[in-house]
């Protein structure tokens, strides 16, 4: 009896969680006029036309922009954070404590407060109206280093590194060939977090970019809204295309993702 009750509550709340996604999917198959009339609870036959409208706009371009920016940011950020984390866990050197303290102290500073400075800096470097600022802003992440340090402390055994050193491996080769494979779980978690942050980022590109060919997904979702104000069908189809990759990536990596999200809370 109790079990049935629990499952029922879980099912109802889960339904609420996915209801907007369901309605979104149904609306992408409808004509806008039908959406206006409230036809959004079942499938229609207009999906292809809605898709064509979206594909004819600048949307594909921004999809590509977001994809390569997110991938570049993720690769650079994760590599740099792992390197830094390795230095901070497996070496003794002068200034180590100071660097760690600096990273932890800046963990809670929200990045947005530096937006004015970043914009001016990018202008001075003649990088505004390029994608480079978006990658540079995401390329370092204090949490990423913190996360790597925590993981390596527990799972990266010093003996493993020492024995590689005995075999004459150079320090960089030790990192590439011994450390990286061992910390794969930490890498996949951080990759998901960084990718998500880059893909969803709205405020930074909004401030930095106004050329339509350089738009990322969040900017172009918004302009899709302005272009097709009355064409809800097309607009919602764009929305669905924008979030589809996230859903796929997330479903594949739920476990490592949630590990990252909960890391700060439980042992913080």
């Amino acid at each position: 009896m109790r079990k049935i009750g629990i499952n029922l509550v879980l099912a109802v709340i889960s339904l609420i969680s996915i209801a907007p996604f369901y309605i979104l999917m149904m609306m992408t198959t409808q004509r806008s006029e039908d959406i206006f009339k409230g036809e959004m609870f079942g499938p229609g036959d207009y999906l292809w036309e809605n898709l064509l409208t979206v594909l004819r706009s600048n949307f594909l371009r921004s999809f590509w922009n977001s994809t390569y920016i997110a991938i570049a940011t993720t690769v650079i950020c994760v590599f740099i954070c792992a390197l830094a984390g390795f230095a901070l866990t497996k070496y003794e050197f002068r200034g180590k404590k100071a660097v760690l303290a600096f990273i932890i102290a800046t963990l809670m500073v929200p990045g947005q407060i530096g937006l004015v400075g970043f914009l001016i800096e990018m202008r001075a470097l003649h990088l505004s109206q390029t994608h480079l600022p978006l990658i540079l802003a995401g390329a370092t992440n204090a949490f990423g280093v913190f996360w790597m340090v925590q993981f390596m402390k527990t799972y990266l055994h010093t003996e493993l590194i020492e024995s590689a050193r005995m075999d004459g491996c150079s320090e960089f080769r030790i990192f590439m060939q011994i450390v990286l494979p061992v910390i794969t779980p930490a890498i996949s978690t951080l990759s998901l977090l960084v990718f998500l942050g880059s893909w969803n980022n709205y405020l930074l590109p909004l401030v930095l970019i106004n050329q339509e060919s350089l738009f990322t997904i969040p900017l172009s979702i918004n302009s899709l809204g302005n272009l097709y104000r009355t064409d809800y069908g097309a607009r919602l189809t764009g929305l669905l295309i924008a979030i589809a990759p996230l859903i796929v990536i997330f479903v594949l990596g739920t476990k490592s993702f949630i590990r990252g999200i909960t890391a700060g809370a439980v042992k913080g």
Binding site: L10, S14, S17, I217, I221, L236, A242, I243, I247, V251
Partner: peptide, 19 residues
């Protein structure tokens, strides 16, 4: 259940606002 209930959290905030 965890995956299902976590989906809203990862969805692009811009898309959530518009939707």
């Amino acid at each position: 259940f965890q995956t299902i209930n976590f989906l809203p959290y990862i969805t692009t905030p811009v898309a959530i606002g518009l939707l």
